[in-house]
Amino acid sequence: MTTHYLVLSGLLFAIGAMGVLIRRNAIVVFMCVELMLNACNLAFVAFARQNGNLEGQIIAFFVMVVAAAEVVVGLAIIVTIFRTRRSASVDDANLLKY
């Protein structure tokens, strides 16, 4: 079964990555990042059972905590940017270039 879980995890990760690449709404991009993190968590949990080791679950737990913190700060940043630029598109924040 581990193989199944890992394949599912890889699929979800790739879908999330593709979402990051093609979506322009910063909030949706953020959601895709969350999806990628969740895919990783699934792999961790699967490996924990495969190896008979609880540490995988502990790591998944930490990932969730860090992801929560990240979401809080990231969304605050998005709100701040939106407040000043009236736009939540990642393509509009492209001043740092040649």
């Binding site: 322009r24 990642v90 492209n94 740092l96 040649y98």
Partner: peptide
């Protein structure tokens, strides 16, 4: 340097 478009998605 034209590669440095400023679009985060290109970098990603």
């Amino acid at each position: 340097r034209r590669i440095q478009t400023g679009f985060a998605r290109s970098y990603a």
